[in-house]
Nucleic acid binder design. Structure first.
Length: 464
RNA sequence: GGUCCCUUCGUCUAGCGGUCUAGGACACCGGCCUUUCACGUCGGUAACACGGGUUCGAUUCCCGUAGGGAUCACCA
């Protein structure tokens, strides 16, 4: 074990999205690689917006991606007593103060400042007041230094510094007594002994005030690393209008978790020219040094390509199990065969998602072939009768039913009819499948089995 | 608007002063393979934002400009 302690701290106000998944992944990989500790913390101080469903959804998504954590999940809602105590400590030491300004007043001041071109920053009305207004609602603000510089060496971006006079006095405790994010994140990261805070770079601007709070609370300041954002195709922050942003939505669209992990890690991180990484390889090769500093555009095409790759090279047994779920969703019963594994093998090279695979596999299991009119019109015409009869006859003669013997039978048909496979195949395909696209017909026949194949050919012949 | 961050092909990126007539991947466009659809395979188009420095020499270092992003809540 090393001393490294990192954490992922989502707020349960929705599903786990692509960006969150990536920061979770980076934290996980680093902890694994450095043999450190990965802590999961649920940031639910906003009781009104946090839900158990969201917590479950996030946990589920992390599990799907294979991101396990060593400690947690810890809930901030269980730790209110601690925060209260720490707020009191700052109050007692004069490092925080009560502010009686109402939300409405502040909003008005902010708007006025913005309108006149000034900074929309807290004006310090209550900063120096000594009196305590009994019975009056108040918030607690952190007293920020008015001068000086706060800086830190970001593990990804390098040195970042802020003038303290740019910072205003943030609210650390609301009127209802609950603490706010910028405060609890400091108390938690400190008390959980987090040594490296690795998070999205939308938090860069929060970092200086958090550092100031670490110092005020007497905590050691951890290291920080800010990973760049993920953007949509139009370079604006990735959102629903760019397509699915929920990790689990991709599961439902037939994506494999290893494809998602591989895609996410390569968005903003690289290892020479390599593109394909298993989780195990990532744990070995990942490092912050190779994380880029600039935001990246989410590219669904590349994710799809990666998914196709993992389907192509995946274990047919596992893919078969996954495929079955998708077939079931489509109301297709696989219990009567053919073998899922055999089915998968014929589709691995041509399906980019499990959804596509399920669509391509449906014909194997449907009790009756569903004929596409256009395909029938073109390839199941009366003049094809002799050819199909010949096919049926020679296939019937096959004893050892496999790809090789089937191909041999077709060879005989070709000799007998004097036709090339190109003239025979399409009609056979329509007879077996109902449409014009499918895996190779020898494969289809082999997987379907002799009995089902002959039956389908006979049914097609009967239509002529 | 203030502050902070960022800037190599359309996109993800390699490059850590000379090896760059800038490499890989996705996408795109062609050829080949072929019983359909795919897979595969071969090849092609395509980028160092701009302007100053520093240096014998800048894609690489520094400073500006421009552009993009983030953030300025009693959300996290």
């Amino acid at each position: 074990m090393s001393d490294l302690r990192v954490r992922f701290a989502p707020s349960p106000t929705g599903y786990l999205h692509i960006g969150g998944a990536r920061t979770a992944l980076f934290n996980y990989l680093l902890a694994q690689k450095e043999k450190g500790t990965f802590v999961l913390r649920i940031e639910d101080t906003d009781v009104a917006r946090s839900t158990q469903e969201s917590v479950d959804a996030i946990l589920q998504a992390m599990d799907w991606l294979g991101l396990s954590y060593d400690e947690g999940p810890f809930y901030q809602s269980d730790r209110f007593d601690l925060y209260k105590e720490k707020v009191q400590q700052l109050l007692d030491e004069g490092k925080a103060y009560r502010c009686y300004c109402t939300a409405e007043e502040l909003e008005a001041k902010r708007e006025a400042a913005l309108k006149s071109g000034g900074k929309p920053k807290y004006d310090g009305t209550c900063r120096d007041r000594q009196d305590v207004l009994e019975g009056q609602p108040y918030v607690v603000r952190f007293r920020s230094p008015e001068e000086g510089v706060t800086e830190f060496i970001d593990r990804i971006k390098g040195k970042i510094s802020f003038q303290n006079n740019e910072l205003d006095d943030v609210i650390i405790q609301r009127t209802d007594g609950t603490p706010t994010y910028n405060f609890v994140v400091v108390v938690d990261d400190a008390t959980m002994n987090i040594t490296l805070v690795l998070r999205g770079d939308d938090h860069i601007n929060n970092t200086p005030r958090q550092i100031l709070m670490y110092q005020a609370l007497g905590y050691p300041v951890p290291e920080f690393g800010h990973v760049p954002m993920i953007l949509g195709a139009d370079k604006s922050r990735l959102s629903k209008r760019h397509g699915a942003t929920s990790v689990m939505a991709y599961k439902e669209m037939g994506y494999l978790p290893e494809a998602m992990v591989n895609y996410l890690v390569r968005l903003g991180w690289s290892f020479g020219d390599e593109e394909i990484f298993s989780l195990a390889e990532l744990i070995e090769k990942f490092s912050l040094e190779n994380v880029g500093r600039s935001a990246g555009v989410f590219n669904p095409d590349k994710l799809l390509w990666l998914n196709a790759h993992y389907i192509k090279t995946g274990d047919p047994v596992r893919l078969g199990q996954l495929l079955q779920e998708f077939l079931q969703k489509d109301g297709i019963d696989t219990s009567a065969g053919p073998e899922l594994i055999a089915v998968v093998k014929t589709l691995q090279d041509r399906a980019k998602t499990l959804v596509e695979m399920a669509q391509g596999a449906a014909f194997y299991f449907k009790p009756e072939v569903e004929f596409e009119p256009a395909a029938v019109e073109k390839f199941l015409t009366a003049d094809k009768k002799p050819v199909l009869e010949s096919v049926l006859r020679h296939l019937d003669l096959v004893n050892e039913w496999n790809e090789g013997t089937i191909e041999a039978a077709f060879g005989t048909v070709m000799e007998e009819t004097g036709l090339k496979l190109g003239k025979i195949g399409p009609s056979v395909r329509v007879a077996l499948v109902g449409g014009t696209t499918s895996p190779g017909i020898f494969d289809v026949l082999a997987v379907l089995g002799k009995e089902a194949s002959l039956k389908r050919l006979q049914i097609a012949l009967d239509r002529l």
